[in-house]
């Protein structure tokens, strides 16, 4: 198991390196960069004063070097004008547009994004697994139809619409706060119990909005998977042994049907991040979605590079978690990897 973990972490590091290169190349594909655009702008408007400062900054951030050198400097494998200072050294770069270090701007945002997505992920599984299982076992009953109905609505309703509806009625009838991820007075404050409480109540609506469609999809698939498993011979064996129905279903077919969903944890993370852009805009959530969109548009490369890399890390961690869970849950995978590792 430890050998397997080391192996997985090793491949993860290599994957991350490949992704960082890919990300950097892609965000540099559009011609020009933030500073060269600024310079062109200033030339057009005749602002000679700023041009020299901008050119200095180009040199300071090595934007005048070839892309591969820029990349190596970015990740910290090559010394820049100020020595080694890149991702490996914990320096995530400078946002040209906001004129502050990237980490200052997105540090809390990244954490909040992770929290929102984690909450949505938990919501997806907590809601979808029991509902899907009940729908499969009671296939054709009212509860199956009800679950299907809710599922279809979840799939068919655009997220931002659901967000607006929930915000309006949530605020009116349940006093659920509308918009944002915390009360205004806590913004920029250090973490405290009051702030945490505020974040949690603000999380309710976004979690439901972001998670609903994914939950509906998971529910439909679990229902189908479980219905396939329910009539397998090993379930009949359990019946013939006299195992009571609920215990029987949970212990045998449900466990068999769960594998694909465990494997999906990693895939759900990026889906949720990109899917939440629209919702974040509508609900003015300080998550990475809108930040990414904006920085890509203004070619603020270090900013967008960091956000894309962060999402990749989320995905990789999600996949690591699913792989570890699979190994723990399924002896077939466990014993195969043991045989390989040993």
């Amino acid at each position: 198991m430890i050998g397997y973990l080391i192996q997985r972490l090793g491949t993860m590091a290599v994957t991350l390196l490949a992704i960082s290169a890919l990300v950097f190349v892609i965000i540099n594909l559009p011609p020009g960069n933030y500073m060269s655009n600024r310079i062109a702008e200033m030339q057009a408007s005749g602002e000679a004063a700023g041009i020299q400062r901008a050119e200095e900054m180009m040199a300071e951030y090595s934007l005048d070097k070839p892309v591969w050198q820029q990349y190596l400097i970015w990740i910290g494998a090559l010394p820049g004008p100020t020595g080694f200072s890149g991702l490996l050294q914990g320096d995530f770069g400078w946002s040209f547009e906001l004129e502050r270090p990237v980490i200052d701007i997105v540090g809390e945002t990244a954490a909040l994004t992770a929290i929102v997505n984690l909450a949505a992920l938990v919501f997806v599984y907590v809601v979808a697994l029991p509902l899907g299982a009940i729908a499969a076992v009671r296939a054709g009953s009212w509860i199956d139809y009800l679950a299907s109905f809710i599922g279809y609505i979840g799939l068919a309703t655009p997220n931002f619409l659901l967000a607006l509806i929930l915000l309006t009625y949530g605020a009116r009838y349940f006093d659920i706060p509308a918009g944002g991820l915390m009360h205004r007075e806590f913004e920029g404050e250090p973490m405290s119990w009051a702030k945490l409480g505020s974040i949690l109540t603000h999380l309710i609506v976004p979690t439901i909005v972001i998670g609903t469609s994914a939950a509906a999809a998971v529910m439909r698939r679990l229902r189908a998977n479980l219905m396939d498993e329910l009539h397998k011979p090993y379930v009949e064996t359990a019946r013939a042994k006299g195992v009571p129905p609920v215990m029987r279903t949970i212990r045998y077919p449900l466990r068999m049907a769960l594998n694909p969903f465990v494997a999906d944890i990693g895939n759900l993370a990026p889906q949720l991040v990109s899917g939440s852009v629209m919702v974040s805009v509508v609900m003015s959530l300080p998550t990475l979605g809108p930040v990414l969109l904006h920085s890509l548009k203004s070619q603020d490369i270090f900013m967008s590079g960091f956000v894309l890399l962060f999402v990749s890390v989320l995905t990789l961690v999600g996949m690591l978690i699913s792989d570890i869970l699979l190994v723990l849950l399924d002896p077939r995978i466990r014993l195969k990897s043991k045989r390989r590792g040993a």
Binding site: K232, P233, Y234, T237, A240, G242, M256, P331, R332
Partner: peptide, 25 residues
Amino acid sequence: LRRLRGQTISMVFQEPMSALSPLHR
């Protein structure tokens, strides 16, 4: 009936691979 099953009346199935759960010892 469940009290009889497995204990008083038991069954041997055809296909041993699929009659046993692969996830349990």
